[in-house]
Structure formats: structure tokens, C-alpha cells
């Protein structure tokens, strides 16, 4: 990106970045899934295995988001983030597997921890 670009191109730049750096690298995995899923039925072993891989990958994303947070969440100490996630999870189990209860309790712990340990 150079300052010599005309204004039209400069205005379009964020959208070009959105498509090439955001949309395409993200969408390619959905399209690959569509290609692979052709001809598979609900009860096939490949589908069952895919569910296990999807769940484990998602778990990996969760671990990464908790350990290496972005944006303003990065300012909250790691111990507070992990404690909040753990307490939220326990609350979910205690409250008869209520997602709402787990999320509400986990968020409250993060808020309290952030209030006490930051600033």
C-alpha cells in the first residue's frame, strides 16, 4: 500500500484485504468440507470421525483463545482467564448442564477478577 495510490483504490483497500486475508483463507475449509461430504451418509464412520476431529479442533481453538488472547482480553491475567473458564464449566455441570448458567458464572468471575487484578 503506497501513499501515491488514488483515493478510489485506498477506499477499496480494506475490502480487498477482507476478501483475500479474511474471507478466502476462512472459506476454503468450508468448501473442502462440502467436497468431501458428497456421498457420505449420516451414519458413516468418516462422518463420526469428522465429528471427533471437529470437536478436538474446536477444543484446540478454545485452549489457544484462553492461553493467547487478543485485544483487550490480553490485558486480563492468564490465571484469571483460566479460573473464570474452569469455574464457569463447574457451574454448567452443577446447574444441570445449563449453558446459560455456565456462561453467566464464568463471565462474572472474569469481570470480578479483572476488576481486582487489573488497573
Amino acid at each position: 500500500m503506497s501513499a501515491a495510490m488514488n483515493p478510489g483504490v485506498t477506499d477499496l483497500w480494506p475490502f480487498l484485504v477482507l476478501v483475500t486475508v479474511g474471507f478466502l483463507p476462512n472459506e476454503i475449509w468450508r468448501v473442502l468440507g462440502l467436497v468431501l461430504a458428497r456421498g457420505l451418509n449420516e451414519d458413516s464412520q468418516v462422518v463420526l470421525w469428522s465429528r471427533a476431529v471437529a470437536t478436538a479442533t474446536l477444543a484446540g481453538v478454545i485452549a489457544k483463545l484462553l492461553l493467547f488472547s487478543n485485544g483487550s482480553l490480553a490485558a486480563i491475567p492468564l490465571a484469571v482467564r483460566l479460573t473464570a473458564a474452569a469455574v464457569g464449566f463447574v457451574a454448567f455441570l452443577v446447574a444441570k448442564r445449563s449453558v446459560f448458567a455456565g456462561v453467566a458464572v464464568g463471565e462474572s468471575v472474569l469481570l470480578a477478577g479483572g476488576y481486582l487484578f487489573v488497573s
Binding site: G33, N41, E42, S50
Partner: peptide, 19 residues
């Protein structure tokens, strides 16, 4: 690269969902 790595999960999710 970071976007595409975070999106890998979508692949097995689509495979498990479409059938």
C-alpha cells in the same frame, strides 16, 4: 495464515453436518 489455521475446524464440521 492465522485466519486459515483458526478456520480448519470448519472442514470436519461441514463434513459432519451436511449428511
Amino acid at each position: 495464515l492465522a485466519v486459515t489455521l483458526s478456520a480448519i475446524r470448519l472442514f470436519p464440521m461441514v463434513v459432519a453436518l451436511l449428511p
